[in-house]
Design a protein around this nucleic acid. Sequence first.
DNA 1: ACATTAAGTGATT
DNA 2: AATCACTTAATGT
Length: 223
Amino acid sequence: MSEVTFNVDSSECIRKLSDKFQFLFEPGLISDMCRTGMIRKFKEGTTIMDIGQILTHMPLVINGSLKIMKEDKEGNELLLYYLELGDTCAVTLSCCTKPTKSTIKAVTESDAEILFIPVEKMEDWMVKYKSWRGFVLDSYNIRMNEMLDAIDNLAFNNMEERLYKFLRDKVMVTKDAKLHITHFQIANELHSSRVVISRIMKKLENEGLVIQHRNYVEVKEFM
DNA sequence: ACATTAAGTGATT
DNA sequence: AATCACTTAATGT
């Protein structure tokens, strides 16, 4: 649960952001980001935003990845989507005008570095920087489409397809074909039960799509 | 050797 | 597809 905060003083931050975003944002915007935002580093598995928490900053992923999920009152989780380099959270975008409580939970999927921007800046920058305006609109669009996909997947796909898609997405985002996860954990993320996952995993294994080990699964090539 | 935890299986709803 | 009850297998002490 350890986390390092280092305050953004000029050059270090500007260098870092320019490196990643120079083709996306103009220099003025990047230095504005460094002035008002802060970069924080998180270890894998850290909850950086929880349900009910007030949204004061919007996250922009610089390194690593985040998973965004919903949770019901029993603590069951449901994965919504992943955030990677240059991604921001649509839920935060939608409520930038006034302080709002988060309806989702964000957990780091790998070690991650995130730039937090105060929500008040959102509107200022929308008029001040054309690139920001475009970025926000694009992000919103992309995320909206991803959400529709997620709903589609949930409503119309059977468990086998859902599970295999889940595994593939996870390999993509962690860039590792070996997933260190148990059947029980998968069941929680997909809102299913351990037994069901075990059965489907067996099936996927027989189809040659995965190789199972204790405490981890190896996903075979799928490109 | 024993306990703990992950994964496999048949039967039932 | 979910749940129960039980088995088997791997791992840590």
